[in-house]
C-alpha cells in the first residue's frame, strides 16, 4: 500500500517536473534572445542598410527580403492550397487519385527543408534558369508550405456541419455554389488560421533559401523578383558563421533574431487569436 502511495507521489511530481523543465528551457531561451537583442532595436536598425562589412548599420534589406519571399510564396501557395483542399474534401473522386494525392502531401510535409532547397536549386535555379532569386526562393517555399495550407483547408471544411450543405442544396444551389457561397465562408476562419501559421513558417525558414534566394550581402534593394535578396534567417546564420568580426556581428545577429522572432510571434499570435475568437463566436 505504501509503495503505491510513493509511486503515485513520484509519478505526479515527475510529470510536473517535465512540464516545469520544458517551460524553464523555453522561457530561458526566449529571455536570452530578447535580453541580448532587444537593446539593439531602434528605428535606424530597422530602416538602415548594413555598413562597414556588416559590423554596423541596420538590417533593412533583410527585412525587405524576408517580406517579399514570404508574400510571394503565400501568393502562390494560398490559392493552390485552398483549391486542393476543396478537391480533396468536396469532390474526393476518383478514390485512387485522392489517395495518391494524400500520400504525396503527407510525404511532402515530412521531407526535410534542406531537400526542398536542393529541389529548388536543381529545378528553379538551374532547370528553369531563374537563377538565385526571389522567384526561385518563393517557389521553393511555396511548395514547402503547401501541405500546411491544404491540411488546414481540409480540416476546416470537415468541421462545417452537413446541415449547411443540405440546406444549400435544397435551395437549388449547384455543388460549386454550395462550396463557394456556404462552405468556404463558414470554413474561412480556420483556413485563415492555418495559412497564417504557414506564413510564419515561410518567414522563418533558412535551409530552402540557402541556395535558391539568399545572399549574404547586397548593397541594393531588390528591383524585381529575379534579384537575389538578403533574408533575416539567413542573415542570422551568416553573421554567426561567416562573419569576420564576431564582437560586433553577434549583437547584430541577436538584434535580427529579435526582429524575426517578433515577426513570427505576431503572425502566429494573430492566427491563434483568430481561432480563439472564432471558437467563441461560432454557434454551430
Amino acid at each position: 500500500m505504501k509503495k503505491r502511495k510513493i509511486l503515485e507521489f513520484a509519478g505526479e511530481w515527475a510529470l510536473k517536473l517535465s512540464v516545469g523543465i520544458s517551460l524553464a528551457f523555453l522561457f530561458l531561451f526566449l529571455f536570452m534572445i530578447f535580453s541580448k537583442g532587444a537593446g539593439r532595436l531602434s528605428i535606424s536598425f530597422l530602416t538602415q542598410m548594413p555598413k562597414n562589412g556588416m559590423t554596423e548599420g541596420g538590417i533593412f534589406p533583410a527585412i525587405i527580403g524576408t517580406l517579399s519571399l514570404t508574400l510571394l510564396s503565400m501568393l502562390i501557395a494560398f490559392p493552390l492550397g485552398v483549391l486542393s483542399g476543396i478537391f480533396l474534401s468536396e469532390y474526393g473522386k476518383p478514390a485512387w487519385l485522392v489517395s495518391i494525392i494524400k500520400t504525396s502531401i503527407n510525404t511532402l510535409s515530412g521531407t526535410p527543408s534542406i531537400v526542398f532547397g536542393l529541389f529548388g536549386l536543381s529545378v528553379f535555379v538551374i532547370g528553369f534558369n531563374m537563377g538565385v532569386s526571389i522567384l526561385s526562393g518563393s517557389l521553393t517555399l511555396a511548395v514547402l508550405i503547401l501541405p500546411i495550407i491544404i491540411n488546414a483547408t481540409v480540416e476546416s471544411i470537415k468541421s462545417v456541419p452537413f446541415d449547411f450543405r443540405e440546406a444549400a442544396f435544397s435551395l437549388g444551389a449547384t455543388k460549386r455554389q454550395v462550396i463557394t457561397r456556404v462552405i468556404l465562408p463558414a470554413a474561412a476562419p480556420g483556413i485563415l488560421t492555418g495559412s497564417i501559421i504557414s506564413v510564419g513558417r515561410a518567414a522563418g525558414e533558412t535551409a530552402p533559401i540557402l541556395f535558391t534566394a539568399a545572399t549574404f550581402y547586397t548593397r541594393r534593394l531588390p528591383k524585381s523578383v529575379m534579384d537575389e535578396v538578403m533574408a533575416m534567417p539567413y542573415h542570422i546564420y551568416a553573421l554567426m558563421t561567416e562573419g569576420t568580426a564576431p564582437e560586433s556581428q553577434v549583437p547584430i545577429a541577436y538584434g535580427t533574431a529579435v526582429v524575426l522572432l517578433l515577426l513570427v510571434l505576431i503572425i502566429n499570435g494573430t492566427a491563434i487569436l483568430i481561432r480563439y475568437r472564432m471558437r467563441k463566436r461560432r454557434n454551430w
Binding site: S84, F87, E90, I100, I101, F116
Partner: peptide, 15 residues
C-alpha cells in the same frame, strides 16, 4: 480544383 490538387503529386515527383 482537381488540377490544383494534382500539383502536389507533381511537386513530390519533382523532388
Amino acid at each position: 480544383t482537381l488540377a490544383a490538387a494534382s500539383l502536389s503529386i507533381l511537386f513530390l515527383m519533382g523532388i
